[in-house]
Design a protein around this nucleic acid. Sequence first.
RNA 1: GCCGACGUAGCUCAGCGGUAGAGCAACUGAUUCGUAAUCAGUAGGUCCCCGGUUCAAUCCCGGGCGUCGGCACCA
Length: 646
Amino acid sequence: MLAITLPDGSVRQFDGPVTGTTIAASIGPGLAKAALAMEVDGLARDLSQVIDADAAVRFITRRDPEALGMIRHDVAHVLAEAVQALYPGTQVTIGPAIENGFYYDFARNEPFTPADFPAIEAKMREIIARNEPFVREEWPRHEAIAFFRERGERYKAELIQDLPAGVPISIYRQGEWLDLCRGPHMRGTGDVGSAFKLTRVAGAYWRGDHRNAMLSRIYGTAWRDQKELDAYQLQVEEAEKRDHRKIGLHTGLFHLQDEAVGSVFWHPKGWKLYRTVEDYMRRRLDASGYAEVKTPQLVDRRLWEASGHWEKYREHMFLARVEDEAEHERVMALKPMNCPCHVQIFNQGIRSYRDLPMRMAEFGACHRYEPSGALHGIMRVRAFTQDDAHIFCTEAQIADETVAFVDLLSSIYRDLGFDSFVVKFSDRPASRAGSDAVWDQAEGALKEACAAARVGYEMNPGEGAFYGPKLEFVLRDAIGRDWQCGTLQVDFVLPERLDALYTAEDGSRRRPVMLHRAILGSFERFLGILIEQYAGRFPLWLAPVPVVVATITEEAAAYALEVVAALRAAGIAANADVRNEKINRKVVDHIEQRIPVLAVIGKREAEERKLVLRRLPGREQETLPLAEAIALLAAEATPPDLRRPA
RNA sequence: GCCGACGUAGCUCAGCGGUAGAGCAACUGAUUCGUAAUCAGUAGGUCCCCGGUUCAAUCCCGGGCGUCGGCACCA
């Protein structure tokens, strides 16, 4: 006898080992039809799996959250079978479910192109229509390896070989085709349904290592039903409209061009936005005990050699070779970061423990020769400005400084419209400076500080900087891509390399710890994300043109110019639109230009000295006396930090 | 950097082995019109660059540059 406990607490007895299929059937025909897989004592399993001991069982149906992952995983198998059927000689590798879909990596001499999709999708629908059951088998390891080797599947053979000993080698069959897979799967290929679509092809390195062969990856999306797929595609289209590259160009914020790849040409409106954010940041830093500095752009290679950057990042630095009068060549580098220069300022004179913590900030313009494939709009560029600062402090001060930093960062993100963000903790990378003991200390200090600041984080193993562990504050763009913006890095190495010292209370000379920290990260990246966050329609305090005053008739033009002057006097960078166009046209134009507030005036308003305010792209309007309207707009155009009582 | 796709007017895009087209924008004129595109006209292009094939290349081929999507990288 064995007892199966169901989620509602009820218990069913069975004479002997049973499959999920049998249990589901015993509960009812509806469930028997709906159950795709099950969870046995909390672990996902095939429905066909035999249960031979008392267990808690929960059935997974199409409605359950796990179903999406299963559909995507199963459709990846279907894709692999279809591809091997159509393109003999193609080797399979791995094909996981991912956010919104799935992919499968294939090894094939000739890469796929989107033109191949219709044929592949048609073949996939055939396989799904056949509804072949997924059948799980466990094979002895050597047999599995021999089998895949014989079929020329060297990647699969390698995968099996590298599976840890003791892990069962499970094989899933779907009709004639089979694949190594951990499972679980749904009942058969028919459960995949028809709400899937291949989306793109891409190259991807085998096992994510650039020294390995490049495989051909096919991405797809898959959903429970057509409605979900349609909704997803609509969402993707909407997200694409928020793309900062499109909005930036369209609303005249900036442009990029071939003669300065990776550098931004900021136009007047974009630069206004930039300066608004910079001014805001400067006020926040001033109020938080930071002292701003400015350091050289071109610095002799000696300093980069001393800091260790030369050895590790020379390839990614812009160099300038100059000859002095004696024809000695000097190699200078455009600074790729600010920290070594900040240490030079710290090292001037003799520092006391009384000077610590010393918070040294710079809006530091940096250049890095980023690999061409990494460039992305203004989010990943070769010339950028960091809101950088280095806090020179004692080990004992790390926790307090981290707490203060996280508070400041949270407040700033909130002001700028980001209520939530992800924190990642990146610990020691394989290639690093400093001893393990120093790393233990640095990672420990940062973890303690996180606890003190009550910051939850996810681990990002091996992703720390070469000189120390880091916290990354990650924001997401419109298309769902994650970007590291803020960062806090603990560094015991650079003070050592650049010989930073202070005199302690007991008169001894000690090394300060350096905390490298940034909140926006780079202005370029952050503004790119900000544009996507607001779809180019900023709150009044950020908008380069917060208000446009549009006339209905030329008779109102004089009043319009007067209103604009009054708005500007109140600190609102308003523009007038007195073009000889219909008001309908003006409304459309300013919606497209992402102007947040349109003030419409005609003869009536001019006579009554009023303003009609319309929040674009909305349709509602309110009519206010001029002074009242200006006061309202001025309040809204005030940066949030200046709105708060001091 | 690697794999793939793409590069035509300011923007969005169509097109073709016989030296290019639309819509919007620009400019000119008319219209002064109360909340989601007024009408008419004019002008605008080394078809990314360099080679090659061809009687002839924007189109085909090779190389380069750039952009886009991934991968790798991200001090």
